[in-house]
Amino acid sequence: MDSKPTLSRKKFQIKVKTIKLLFVLMALVILTMIVVHPQDPLWARDRDNYELYAKYGFGYFDQYFSQGGYLSVISNEPLFISINGLLGYIFTPDTVVLILVGVGYFVTNFVISRENDYSILPVLMYLLLPQTLKNNVMQTRQGLAVAWYLFFLTQNNRFFKSFRFFSVFIHTGSAILIVADIFRSCMRKFNFRKGQMVVSFAVLSMIIAKVVPTLSQFVGDRRADEYDFLADSGVSGLAWIFWLFFFVIFFVISESDQYSDISLLGIIFYLSTYFNFDLSGRAFEFFVPVILLSLFRQKGSWEKYVLIFILMMYAAMGWYQNGGITGWLATT
């Protein structure tokens, strides 16, 4: 007697999910075109640098090998160079950049939405946050690395899931994501509690901040001479206060899964190194998409919606303080 209603309910659920999927795909196609299309020098000013990778492709391997041998090649994003080199055989350099921007933006948003039952809200939040938009509009390499990491992180097959570690060969900055990921797995394997895991990673984060300059020089990373890795004297501390507040609430409401744990470790890394490591904010940007994915997955407590609201206020304040999109891009 109950089989027909049950079957009908399942069909209805499948239909709703299909409609949501199609709606999200349509929205993502439109938003991806908006992100990819602009050719204004202010909006896409860094794309000329990325076009060089598509233009010279595998020639970068020779350059890095001459500077430091195989170690230098491995530490300077060989997967990103290879992707550009292969696409450069087929498309023009400017088209290659547009493809990478589009793929990075689309995949990241699709994964975040898929893990939240194809909700459009995380997609809109991703577009609103200055840090996440910047990663795709200007920092093509970082956006692609995050997309790669998230796509394979959410796979069920353990073999394919392990491919997420290769994101470091697209952008070496994603190494902090991988460190947090591996650290989380080790802590959970030995049954460490969430608080113990966070405190331990805070200590490790401060050690990492001290080691990175020396390590960058040793492996021949191309950015080793671009940064002094010291404290940024221009920081106001407002972002630190915001993320501390966010961290406390999120720590209380978050479930103990891989997304929440990695998010917590990312925030504690930022809080621990904010005042003595000038790349703490840049490294933290790798965690923001994971935080969004995790936040919208939390059960419907009022604290969750408070965090979403203050995140929206944080985004609005960021845009306002920097004079909107054009003003922010000009100062980034």
Results as ranks from 00 to 15, higher is better:
Leu150Arg: 10
Arg114Asn: 12
Lys134His: 09
Met138Ser: 11
Val146Met: 14
Gln139Asn: 08
Thr132Cys: 15
Ser82Phe: 15
Trp148Arg: 08
Phe80Val: 01
Pro130Gln: 00
Tyr105Cys: 00
Gln67Ile: 02
Gln67Tyr: 12
Phe152Asn: 08
Leu79Ala: 04
Phe91Arg: 06
Asn109Leu: 09
Ile81His: 01
Pro93His: 05
Thr154Val: 14
Asn116Phe: 12
Gln131Cys: 12
Tyr70Ser: 14
Ser82Tyr: 09
Ile99Trp: 06
Phe80Pro: 03
Pro78Trp: 07
Asn135Met: 13
Ser72His: 04
Gly102Ile: 10
Tyr64Met: 08
Ser119Met: 14
Tyr70Gly: 13
Phe65Gly: 06
Tyr105Phe: 12
Asn135Asp: 02
Val123Cys: 07
Ile74Phe: 15
Leu121His: 13
Leu71Ile: 15
Tyr64Val: 01
Ser119Leu: 10
Thr154Cys: 15
Ser82Gln: 06
Phe65Gln: 06
Leu124Lys: 06
Val73Lys: 05
Glu115Ala: 12
Pro130Trp: 01
Arg141Lys: 08
Ile81Leu: 08
Leu144Cys: 00
Asp94Pro: 00
Pro93Trp: 07
Thr154Ala: 15
Val103Thr: 10
Ile83Gly: 04
Leu127Val: 12
Ile112Gln: 12
Val137Gly: 03
Tyr126Asp: 10
Tyr126Cys: 14
Val137Cys: 00
Ile112Asp: 04
Val73Pro: 02
Asn116Trp: 14
Ser75Arg: 05
Asn136Gln: 11
Leu71Gln: 13
Gln139Met: 09
Phe152His: 11
Phe80Ile: 03
Val123Leu: 15
Leu87Gln: 08
Phe80Asp: 06
Gly68Leu: 00
Gln155His: 13
Thr95Arg: 07
Gly104Leu: 02
Val146His: 13
Phe151Met: 11
Asn76Val: 02
Pro93Ala: 03
Gln139Leu: 02
Leu128Gln: 11
Tyr64Thr: 06
Ile99Asn: 04
Pro78Phe: 00
Phe151Trp: 15
Pro78His: 02
Asp117Gly: 10
